[in-house]
Structure formats: C-alpha cells, structure tokens
Design a protein around this nucleic acid. Structure first.
Ligand code: ZN
Ligand code: ZN
Ligand code: ZN
Ligand code: ZN
Lengths: 139, 139
DNA sequence: TGTATATTGTTATATTATTACATATCGTGA
DNA sequence: TCACGATATGTAATAATATAACAATATACA
C-alpha cells in the first residue's frame, strides 16, 4: 500500500476461514455497524444460511480485535484503528446512532492511566461518548 | 440520614410509580446487576406479570439516571453514585462478570476533558474497565 | 497415518425486547 | 368539578438477538 490511510487489514493476515473472511469483508466494505441478522441477509448469496454461522464468525473476529461489538446497539463494526489492541473508544450519536471509532493514541494512554491510578488490573477498556453528530447537531 | 455512605436514594425522591418503585427497590436491595427476566421472576409475588411491565419501569429508571444498564450483560444495576449525572464508569470482571460502579469524581472530570479535547459535543459517556476482580485475580 | 483441534452445517430453542391495543390514572387549566 | 392530554398500566402476541446440541469436515502436525 502506498498510503497508511488507505490501509485495510487483509483477511489473510489472520488466517481467516471462509465464513470469517466473508463476514469481515462485508463489515470492512460497509464501514458502518451492521447487525448479525443484517449480515446474514447480506451473505445469503454467499452461501450463509444460519445465524450461528454469522455469530461464530463474529465472535472470532471480535476475539482477534479486528472487529468490535457496539454493545448498546447489538451491532458490529470493522476496526478502523491499526493498534487499538482490544481497547476501544467510540463516539455514538444519541439521535441517529452513527458510530465512529476514535483514533487517538493519547486518549487511549490517558484512559489506561486512569485505570492504573484507580489501581485496577485492567485487561481492556471500552469508552463510549454519546454525542450529537455533525449531521444531527444543527437540528 | 447520619452518614453519607448509608444514604440510599429514596423512591419518593423521584415520584416513582408503583411498578417503578418495586423494580427500583429490588435493584437497590440486590446491589448487583439483575436481568429483566430475573427481575420479573422476583417480582411475580408483587404482582408483576409481563416482561413489558419490567422493561417499562427499567427504561424510566435508566432515563432518571438512578439505575444503569450494563449493555454487555443486558443487566441493570442501581446507581451507587450520588452524582454520576448519567455519565457512567464501571469495572466488570472479565471472568465472573462482577460489576462495580466507579465513584471517583476526578475520573469523571478527566474523561469529560478527554471528550472536550477531542472537540466532541458529549452528552454523556460510558466507560467500562474489564478487569480481573479480587476474587478471580488469584486464580 | 493417526489424532487432536478447529471449523462447519443444521435444527431447534433460549433469551432479550418491542408492537399493538385497550384501559386506567394523574395533573392541570377552564 | 369537569374535560383534556399526558403518563402509566395490563395483557397478548410477536420480533429481534443469541446459544445449545449434535453430526460431519477440514486442518495442523507428530
Ligand atoms: Zn479498533
Ligand atoms: Zn447523528
Ligand atoms: Zn451511577
Ligand atoms: Zn471476578
């Protein structure tokens, strides 16, 4: 790749299996959060037939840290951060639900520091800022 | 009350209705997160009969900020913070699921500052530290 | 090859949450 | 006091999300 902004994680980087690949590709191409049953609908043409096929792939991809679950939406989004290391930070519009992953290493360090200062043995964290997004702010 | 640590929010402080009161009291007495259908089971003796009665009460209590939803568990816990103002911070044990609300005003300010520094119009935030709790750390 | 591990396919089922609609209660101003 | 709108309740049905159980395949690798 010529440009770090256009870098996308490759499915082969992780030895993904067939189902894992097609689910991951869909999420990466979508760029926005998708729900499991929406993914299933989308991928019926690719041969997926049951929810479990989708959930199994999603669970594995979450485990690898290359997608994240937006718990409050039961949706899944491809990681757009090359190094979030399973720590996650998002903005979520409280009106339209638009989700963006925060890419700010300084913020990640500061949140980790907050955990340390509170003497917590933090394995990972998840931070969600509920905001008015640019599209909704004006209304 | 003689002691701020023993202070519990009173149902009457919020003009709660009958169903809201019994759900809130159960959560406050429990002290740990409960799931909607577990609440329903518990409160059948109090006359609750349908999931919707529970969900309606829970939604209202969340809106008031006196309980919080732990999204990753689909569970609900009474707020143990007198002033979280709908911002929330928790530790969640990644092994046993034990949840504790963080009471550290300084932390809340710092996280709010992180939002401001990122030029976000933050309505509220939710921060989850996935930890090994004291009971599970030794294992 | 043999064997353990991981993945897949499929059906059924469990869990979580909302829609729809009828009824009742509460607050407030005429 | 009454009328009215807003809020809360009761109930049944159903939607949306997720997992259990089990058989069959594929993969890694000693
Ligand atoms: Zn990420
Ligand atoms: Zn928006
Ligand atoms: Zn709280
Ligand atoms: Zn624990």
């Amino acid at each position: 790749m010529t440009n770090s902004q256009s870098y996308n994680k490759k499915t082969n980087d992780y030895n993904l299996t067939k189902n894992q690949k097609i689910v991951f590709n869909l999420l990466q191409n979508s760029g926005e959060p998708l729900k499991a049953y929406a993914i299933l609908e989308n991928l019926k043409r690719e041969g997926l037939k049951s929810p479990l096929q989708v959930y199994r792939a999603l669970n594995k991809l979450v485990e690898l840290g290359i997608i994240h679950k937006i718990e409050s939406q039961n949706s899944f989004i491809a990681c757009s951060n090359s190094n979030c290391a399973s720590n996650t930070a998002f903005t979520i519009c409280r009106r339209c639900g638009d989700v963006k992953e925060i890419k700010n290493n300084h913020l990640f360090e500061q949140v980790s520091d907050l955990g340390k200062k509170n003497r917590l043995k933090v394995h990972r964290f998840n931070l969600e800022f509920y905001v008015d997004c640019n599209g909704c702010k004006v209304n």
